[in-house]
Amino acid sequence: MHRSYQPLKPVTNRYLQQKWDQDNFDNHRKKVTLALPVVDTKGSKTPSHVQLKLKKLQLQDERLSIIERDNRLLASRLASIVCSRGLVDHFNHYHIKSLNADRRRQEQQLVGQQNLDIYRRLSSRQSEYRRQVWLQDWERTNRLREDISRYPPLSLDKQRSQRKVKFAVNRGQSDSSISTDRDDDE
């Protein structure tokens, strides 16, 4: 019984009532699908001056005309370079000037003046060292040394003599004697 059709109102024939209710439902669904909207949701029409954007087109044309003018100038320069047989104007006719040149020149002049003053002061001073006194002191010291020495000083040629000194040599070499100049008085 749970599978049989249950109408909302009491009816004499359930089969016919089910068929009529199904037809009514199908008609309702058809009307719903064919129904037109009452509210206009298409949106407003865009004005022509907003669609066309004349200012943007004008700016683009100006930019293109500037590019074309620059291209013509470059083409004429390239043509002049080609016709000039390789002569290139690459000279810079301007001089580099430092913003700090005056200050540096003043500082250099000041340092130069200070150095000149120092040189003048040094050249005007007399030496405080007495060379003559030093030489006399040295001569006196030499005389005293000669006076108190046991033997008189000899010349260097007489002091040298031949003396043989043996050194041990390693690294597979045989012992050999090396002669050097030494005093024999020892």
Rank of each mutant, 00 (worst) to 15 (best):
R3W: 07
R3K: 15
R3N: 15
T12S: 03
N13T: 00
N13I: 00
Y15S: 06
Y15M: 08
L16S: 01
Q17R: 01
K19N: 07
W20M: 07
Q22I: 05
D23F: 15
F25Q: 10
N27R: 05
N27D: 11
K31F: 06
T33A: 09
L34H: 01
L34G: 05
V38M: 04
V39H: 02
G43P: 00
G43K: 00
P47G: 01
S48L: 11
L52K: 08
L54P: 03
L54G: 05
L54T: 09
K55G: 14
L57D: 07
Q58M: 01
L59Y: 08
Q60A: 09
D61T: 14
E62W: 06
E62D: 08
L64G: 04
S65C: 06
E68W: 04
E68G: 06
R69Q: 08
D70G: 10
D70Q: 14
D70T: 10
N71M: 08
R72L: 02
L74P: 01
A79G: 09
A79T: 10
A79R: 11
I81L: 15
I81E: 13
G86N: 00
N92W: 12
H95C: 15
R103Q: 15
R105C: 05
R105I: 05
Q108R: 12
L110C: 05
Q113R: 12
D117K: 10
D117V: 07
I118L: 14
L122F: 08
L122I: 12
S123V: 10
S123P: 02
S124P: 01
R125G: 09
R125V: 13
E128S: 14
Y129E: 05
R130N: 14
R131Y: 11
R131G: 13
V133G: 06
V133C: 06
W134P: 03
W134D: 10
W134Y: 12
L135C: 03
Q136F: 07
W138H: 10
R140I: 06
L144R: 01
L144F: 02
L144M: 13
I148A: 01
S149P: 00
P153F: 01
L154T: 06
S155F: 07
L156S: 09
K158P: 02
Q159Y: 07
Q159I: 11
S161R: 04
V165G: 01
K166L: 15
F167G: 09
Q173C: 13
S174E: 13
S174V: 06
S174R: 14
S177P: 12
S177Y: 14
S179R: 09
R182V: 02
D183M: 05
